[in-house]
C-alpha cells in the first residue's frame, strides 16, 4: 500500500502561527502491521471504534476548552493523543499534544484555534480511514 499523507489544507480561519510541525496523517506501517498481525476485519473494527470514541472525546474536549477548564481540557487532550498514537494517527496526535500544552498554560486564545484545527484534522482523518476499507488487503508474511 502506498503511504498516505496530506491533511495540511487548514481552513483560513485557523491561524498558521504556532502550528505543530508537519507530520503525515497516518503511520500506514502501523496500520498495515495490525492488519497483518490480526486481520483486515479487526483493523476495520478498531478504526470504527477509534472514530466513534474520538468523536465523543472531541465533544467533551470542546466543552472543556469553552469552559476554560484547564485540568479537564489538558487531560482530555492527553487521552486523545494517546488514542491517536495507538492507531498511528500521527497528525491528530500531534495537534492534540499541542492542545494539551496550550491548555496546561491557560493559553486559551491559541487553544481555541488549535481545537478548531484538531476538529478539522479529525474530519480529514475520518475520510482517510474510511478509504482503507476499499483498499486491497495487506499481504500476510509467510508463516
Amino acid at each position: 500500500m502506498s503511504a498516505l499523507g496530506g491533511g495540511d489544507d487548514v481552513p483560513p480561519s485557523v491561524p498558521a502561527l504556532r502550528r505543530p510541525p508537519s507530520v503525515p496523517t497516518l503511520n500506514r506501517g502501523r496500520l498495515d502491521a495490525i492488519e497483518r498481525d490480526v486481520s483486515r476485519e479487526f483493523l476495520l473494527e478498531l478504526v470504527n471504534l477509534f472514530v466513534t470514541d474520538v468523536a465523543v472525546r472531541l465533544e467533551r474536549l470542546s466543552d472543556a476548552v469553552k469552559a476554560r477548564q484547564t485540568k479537564r481540557a489538558s487531560s482530555l487532550a492527553h487521552a486523545l493523543q494517546g488514542s491517536a498514537a495507538s492507531l498511528g494517527v500521527l497528525k491528530l496526535r500531534s495537534v492534540a499534544q499541542r492542545l494539551e500544552e496550550l491548555t496546561e498554560t491557560d493559553d486559551w486564545g491559541a487553544s481555541d484555534a488549535t481545537l478548531a484545527r484538531l476538529i478539522h484534522e479529525f474530519q480529514h482523518v475520518c475520510q482517510v480511514l474510511k478509504a482503507i476499507g476499499s483498499e486491497p488487503p495487506v499481504e500476510r508474511a509467510a508463516k
Binding site: 471504534l49 470514541d53 495507538s86
Partner: peptide, 16 residues
C-alpha cells in the same frame, strides 16, 4: 486501560 482503541488492540495482540 481507559482508551478503548488501545485496550482492544492490546487485548487482540495478547489473545493472539
Amino acid at each position: 486501560e481507559d482508551d478503548p482503541t488501545t485496550r482492544l488492540l492490546t487485548k487482540s495482540w495478547l489473545e493472539g
